[in-house]
Design a protein around this nucleic acid. Structure first.
Lengths: 344, 344
DNA sequence: CTGTTAGCGCCTTCAT
DNA sequence: ATGAAGGCGCTAACAG
């Protein structure tokens, strides 16, 4: 294991001061062209690589950013991270991943870990909005560590965010169902104390309103984001005196559950019942009865989040970015909601 | 932004030497109980947190490990990373993610990046086996940086590995198809210059052999790991004079393509044709016609990989682990391959 | 047991 | 334009 060459090694070899080497390496303007060239060349020759740890210590910058997500092995978050990674790697940053498991304690712990690791920024999708949580967020702000939320945000002046327009996505999806002739549209909602589910609900409601369809409270059922929950919800819906003839689900998994139950009861999709999901999970495309859904362009979200961070620390000059960026969702219209033969 | 408290702050406050504080903080045995207690308490009171960057510089250990995968947004790799993360976070390590995109240049670049970041270890799934590649791997070995392969390995004495028994998985899957009464079993193979696809092919072949089924070269088609490739392969197979009545695919995606083509041609699954995939991608479970497949227990693989790393750097005392660990794959038997009513 | 000293590799004053 | 010196925060070596 040969030791790394340091600026001192270069200095000794060239019989100049280490400071000069340092300056040359950093393209300091007040270094003579020839010295500079010489240093650069010998550095190359000696295979010099800056010791990032030393640089980190002296500068206080670790050249790494922390990313906190609930879970990494879901398509959505993995793709966001992919986007972040691609953008940040190019700028020489490392990405440190933390999982919160949607657990508040973990979220706080993760932030402390990252703060302690002196990351240059924290990018996170926050799961819990509590007092303790806000407390630590404030700590981040106080430390002047750039904080950027993606997907799930906290409304704080000091933090920026990248989200998608959940209202819009829900509105458009519901609209599509209406266009297919569905007039009794149910909604599988997530936990509406979470902003994004509230937004999706609101978008759904507004679409009904704009089309003069009476909102029916019995058509809204709160589900978890899993198949079973969708099955149960659909059972409930089909037991109603006037069952719906379409459902807009705020989760692809619940949508899948709904579809399974509908088939179980011999109801034809999309002829007699249309289904629209949310999230564009990979499986929605692969089903024999492919599921219409709302794409959240996670990779793009990751990239934008990373760019926002870079912008915030002044890496992207001459570019001013919005503090809060809202991405537009894209509908993926597939078999589960195409009833009519009309040309779309 | 208040400055972090250092050991010097504590030392000053207690009017003792910084070294003593350091020792107390590190539970050095030769420090008096009372001093130790005092230091620990004031450290707590002053909200002292060790500066990892400083520690990293002086120790040469960065307390982070690098993970290189082809892509992070696939269920398999995301899950492996999840396993690694969970295991390593508990030990205070950060996980730095790099994506190679299966590109050799990137793989080399990633290793250099990680080496330069002075990670304490590199865990990787290697895509390319070339000379240049081996060159840099040697460099890692020379630097004494622990190197552990998972899923796709390189056969090097100095590196350890965690893989699954692909041969076994393929063998068992093929065996299951035979048990279902299939006697003309095709195989969709990946690029067999990659060891793991070669192993799956070998397992398939051996199962045929052990059951006295003649191996038919025309039944083996090389595919990519995507739906379209599976469709094309199945088209080819069905055009044969004696088409097969089952297929074992080394990729779930290709298996899905095969299924789509079979349905397209009106062939009933599983009655007239059985399908077995490999990888246990999430969608295989969600299909109406759920797909039988081989699970690679990626989370477990990640955990074991992490444990092997910890073992290698001596964090797990009194435990000796094998250098090359081979995990057993688990069959997930689902609708696409259950023909008979027999009790399994 | 504890204090002193020095060094990890880099950058940044302050001189010259 | 360059050199010398000091410090980032921590630990290890060497005294006592």
């Amino acid at each position: 294991m040969t030791k790394k060459t340091t600026i001192y090694d270069i200095a000794k070899k060239l019989d100049i001061a280490a400071a000069t080497v340092s300056r040359a390496l950093n393209n300091n303007p007040k270094i003579s062209a020839k010295t500079s060239k010489l240093v650069l060349e010998t550095a190359e020759k000696m295979n010099y690589k800056k010791n990032n740890l030393a640089f980190a210590l002296q500068s206080g910058k670790s050249n790494s950013v922390g990313v906190i997500v609930p879970r990494i092995n879901t398509n959505f978050f993995a793709s966001v991270i992919m986007g972040i990674e691609e953008e940040l790697q190019a700028e020489g940053y490392h990405v440190i991943i933390c999982q919160s498991n949607e657990d508040e304690k973990m979220e706080i712990e993760n932030i402390n870990t990252l703060l302690n690791a002196q990351v240059d920024g924290i990018l996170m999708s926050i799961s819990n909005v509590t007092e303790e949580n806000s407390e630590i967020i404030k700590k981040v702000i106080q430390k002047n560590t750039p904080l950027i939320f993606f997907d799930r945000k906290l409304n704080i002046d000091e933090a920026s965010s990248v989200t998608i327009n959940d209202f819009q996505g829900a509105y458009l999806a519901t609209q599509k169902l209406i266009e297919q002739g569905c007039n009794k549209i149910a909604h599988l909602s997530g936990n509406r104390s979470i902003q994004l589910y509230e937004d999706r609900f609101a978008g759904y409601k507004k679409a009904l309103e704009d089309n003069n369809i009476v909102f029916n409270e019995n058509y809204v059922i709160q589900t978890k984001s899993n198949v079973e929950s969708g099955i149960n919800a659909m059972k409930e819906l089909l037991e109603l005196a006037t069952p719906p003839n379409a459902v807009f689900s705020s989760s692809d998994f619940a949508a899948l559950g709904a579809i399974q139950e509908l088939k179980e009861q011999g109801i034809n999709i999309p002829e007699d019942f249309c289904v629209f999901g949310f999230g564009n999970e990979p499986f929605t495309k692969y089903m024999e009865l492919s599921i219409s859904t709302v794409d959240q362009s996670p990779i793009e979200m990751g990239k934008v989040t990373a760019k926002l961070f870079l912008n915030q620390i002044g890496k992207t000059k001459n570019v001013t970015m919005e503090k809060n960026i809202i991405l537009m969702p894209q509908l993926q219209i597939r078999k589960s909601s195409i009833k009519l033969q009309k040309h779309i």
